[in-house]
Amino acid sequence: MQGGAVLALLVVAVAAVSAQGGEGYGHHHLEEYVDYRAHPRYHYDYHVHDPHTHDFKNQWEHRDGKETKGHYSLLQPDGRKRIVEYRAGKHGADYRIKYEGHSEHGGIGSFGIGY
């Protein structure tokens, strides 16, 4: 008799779980309308400043229609800061890269032998 009670409880539990997530049991599906012809516009930025791992970087980007502008910088393993400014549009992309500081560790990107 005890086995029949366990089986009955198992059937009730499965039926309760099925009723929670199944179609037609109170589950509502919301459709989202996306207008792919809408004028694209966004802006974002982020910053990372972690002295423990020496991870220093930031980026921002802004888009308005077909024009996208952005900037990012990071501290490279050799100690120099790389700064990239970019602009992209219907005629292509343009990147301007510059470096600040001097290579301190002889790592990748330096002119010295770092091995």
Rank of each mutant, 00 (worst) to 15 (best):
Y72C: 04
Y86T: 11
T68L: 04
R80K: 06
A16H: 11
G89M: 04
Q2Y: 02
A5D: 09
Y95E: 00
H54T: 00
Q59I: 02
V6H: 10
K98F: 09
Y33P: 02
R87C: 08
S103A: 13
D94L: 05
S18I: 01
Q20Y: 14
V17Q: 12
I97A: 05
R37I: 00
K69D: 15
A15K: 10
G3S: 07
G70P: 12
Y95P: 00
H43M: 13
F56Q: 01
V84S: 03
T53L: 14
G24R: 09
H62F: 14
F111Q: 07
G22D: 15
D35L: 00
G114E: 02
P51T: 03
T68R: 06
G107P: 00
I108R: 10
L7E: 13
R37F: 12
H27P: 05
E61D: 08
G24Q: 11
K90M: 14
V48F: 09
I113G: 13
T53V: 12
R41H: 09
E23C: 08
K90E: 15
S18Q: 11
Y42D: 08
R82L: 09
E32A: 15
R96H: 07
G101I: 06
K90D: 15
V34K: 15
V48C: 05
E31D: 13
A88R: 03
A8K: 05
E67I: 15
H28M: 15
G114F: 09
A13V: 04
